[in-house]
Computed example of a mutant assay.
Amino acid sequence: MVTDLPQRPAAGRRAAVIPPELRTALATLATADELLVATDFDGVMAPLVQRAEDARPLPESAAALRALAEVPHTSTALISGRALASLRHAASPEPETLLVGSHGAETWTGPNAEPLQLTPVQAALLARARQAVASVVDASPGCRLEDKPAGVVLHTRGAPDDVASAAVDAARGRLGELDGVQVTDGKRVLEASVVHSNKGEGIRALRELTGASAVLFAGDDVTDEHGFAALQRGDVGIKVGPGATAAGFRVDSPADFAEVLTHLLQLRRAAVEN
């Protein structure tokens, strides 16, 4: 388990972007019979921004993931808290890239994938959850509400810290009164969902679907810890940025993760060609 980032070196001396132990793990991972490369989007493929709709993947990361999808015996996936429609808009993924949205509640595994359908009970519960969050947003300047197919999200990134904290507490209290609502914390967000799922379940489903013998998963938020917990021996988990984590490895930023993907692409191509 990695706990936090080490101190940066003095000015003029830059630490290696890819730690030596991660390079070693990637070299082994690249030889897998069937490889799944799965990654969160915001904070990993794309830098975090004030407005979620403005996020875009770094060109180097997008190019590397696109190229990995073309390598034989290699599958790629985006596993995000975003709704699928939002993920497609921001990431512009290749058709070969599998998608898991809304923390696992929505999936796209090909043209024949069934869209998410709520039961009447779930739809009624979602309406109540939305009303609870909307009432908090109305009383909290700088906060906003996002609708998802299976949930509703309180965004506090645009609010002062004290307003954000009070809004999260109020929303959590009101949502806690609704039996059957799953509440998930993230970076300046609080999400309520009527479909109980997480990124770990998404990784397990994708592993089975692709027949992967090894998985790389990268994430930056507390919601990604379910994904790291689902990894098995021989897999590689990468935490992007600070914070305690169950991931075995860490890099500083989305820009550093772009180098990781590019390096893995080179290794994987060489392994498959030999």
Rank of each mutant, 00 (worst) to 15 (best):
A127T: 15
L87M: 08
E146G: 02
R144S: 14
Q122G: 05
A159G: 13
A124K: 06
A90S: 15
R88G: 08
E106K: 06
S92L: 11
G158R: 09
P115F: 00
H155Q: 12
H103I: 07
L118Y: 04
A83S: 15
T76W: 01
A91P: 07
P93D: 00
G101M: 04
A127W: 03
Q131W: 04
G101N: 00
L78S: 05
A77E: 01
L126C: 03
C143V: 13
S102D: 07
L125C: 01
P93T: 04
V121F: 13
V121P: 07
R157E: 11
L65W: 00
L65K: 00
K148W: 04
S165L: 12
P93L: 02
R66F: 01
A83M: 12
R130C: 06
V153T: 15
G110V: 03
L154R: 06
A67N: 03
V137L: 12
Q131K: 12
Q117H: 13
H89E: 14
E106M: 05
A123F: 02
L145M: 14
L118P: 03
L116E: 01
G104R: 07
R157H: 15
A77G: 08
C143E: 12
P160I: 10
P111A: 14
L84I: 11
G142E: 02
E106T: 06
R66C: 00
D162A: 15
P111H: 09
V133K: 04
S75P: 07
A83Q: 15
G142T: 06
K148L: 07
S80P: 04
R88Y: 10
L65H: 01
A132G: 00
S165V: 06
A85D: 13
P149F: 02
Q117F: 04
A83I: 08
